[in-house]
């Protein structure tokens, strides 16, 4: 929470925040997050309402957050990326396999990220250049990435490299809490994504392309480059998330992160980003992931409510937000004419 208010004051100038006025869904998400948290704290204090629970959200959902951040770029530009879950698995698999073969950890990680970037580039290129629907192109990418995992190994491969242990050694911080290096990495990635979207020309182009690709082209913006880059960003983010997943599970497997693309899309939508593109924020995605994570944690604490309620809850939230967006979209259009 402290991280959020900090970003809110420093990072988001009134200009960029007010300028898009699409923040009602974000506020709804924030409200829900606070509500779920308060309910959890009342029901399960002292276990729930502590700072450590917040930190744990980042530890347990870091890879989802990174994936969803990449997905935010793609969805903002008007596309969709179904390959992210598979790329996460491929990232973890490459780390496990390459370190297992004796490669140094850094080289394995760089290779994994490069693979994600390459796959993202190919998908973006095919989508832009050959006008293939994003959903189909990334579906093929999903098959390919998962298939490659199984080409590497049918079995789960353990990660034994000490580096992967080191990055999740708890570090004590004031307030009787601990964090892990991975948490810092995740926050840095969110910050970079925030900067890219709101303070760089690329970011503005992403919004423009999502708002109207044809207009963007006529205004002289590099449509193709922007589109392809969003898929590269998503590929890189998914690969990094894959490394984090490898760290978290200390293994690589073709069956890792099955269906994570759905969670990522859900988090982005719940975070207030319009699935048709053009409206949304990275910080909304952060809230979306936090909300999903909090619900999961809450259900864990509850005990008798089993894990599948998470999926149902995500589905319900997805429904509510899609209908909310639809209603807002209709209003926006009627206001325009």
């Amino acid at each position: 929470m402290t991280a959020l208010t900090f970003m809110g004051k420093r990072g988001m100038t009134a200009f960029t925040f007010v300028s898009r006025r699409g923040y009602l869904p974000v506020l709804v998400t924030l409200g829900l997050l606070v509500a779920v948290f308060v309910v959890g704290s009342i029901l399960y204090y002292p276990d729930f309402g502590t700072g450590q629970v917040v930190v744990n959200l980042f530890i347990d959902n870091g890879f989802l957050l990174v994936t969803a951040v990449g997905m935010t770029f793609v969805i903002l530009s008007g596309g969709i990326d179904l390959s992210v879950g598979a790329v996460v698995a491929l990232g973890a698999m490459l780390c496990a396999w390459l370190t297992g073969m004796g490669w140094p950890a850094w080289l394995a990680i760089v290779t994994a990220i490069a693979a994600g970037a390459l796959l993202g580039f190919i998908q973006g290129y095919v989508i832009h250049e050959f006008e293939i629907q994003p959903f189909i192109a990334t579906l093929a990418g999903m098959f390919l990435a998962r298939g490659l995992c199984f080409v590497i190994s049918i079995e789960q491969i353990p990660i034994k490299d000490p580096f992967f242990d080191w990055v999740q050694t708890p570090i004590a911080v004031p307030g009787d809490m601990f964090i892990k290096p991975t948490v810092i990495l995740v926050l840095v990635i969110v910050a970079i994504a925030y900067w890219m979207l709101h303070y760089t020309r690329f970011g503005r182009n992403v919004y423009a392309v999502g708002g109207s690709a044809q207009s963007a082209l006529l205004m002289g913006l590099p449509l193709g480059r922007t589109r392809i880059l969003t898929y590269v960003v998503s590929g890189v983010c998914s690969a990094i998330a894959g490394v984090l997943f490898g760290v978290y599970t200390l293994s690589g497997s073709g069956l890792h992160a099955v269906g994570m693309e759905l969670d990522a899309i859900a988090a982005v939508v719940i975070g207030g980003t319009l699935l048709t593109g053009g409206y949304g924020y990275v910080l909304g995605t952060l809230l979306g992931v936090m909300l999903l994570g909090t619900i999961k944690t809450l259900l864990n604490f509850q005990g008798t409510l089993s894990s599948w309620w998470t999926r149902i809850a995500i589905g319900v939230l997805l429904f509510v937000f899609i209908v909310l967006q639809r209603a807002l979209g209709t209003r926006r259009r009627s206001a325009g004419v």
């Binding site: 699935l275 089993s306 894990s307 599948w308 309620w309 999926r311 149902i312 589905g315 319900v316 899609i322």
Partner: peptide
């Protein structure tokens, strides 16, 4: 009726459906 894009509309059930299935089988 609501005019939601088909990919998005059916995504909802795609996400929640497995949860419902597990709810029925109690996991």
């Amino acid at each position: 009726w609501l005019g939601i894009q088909p990919i998005i509309a059916t995504l909802i059930l795609m996400v929640a459906g497995r949860g419902v299935a597990q709810l029925i089988t109690s996991g």
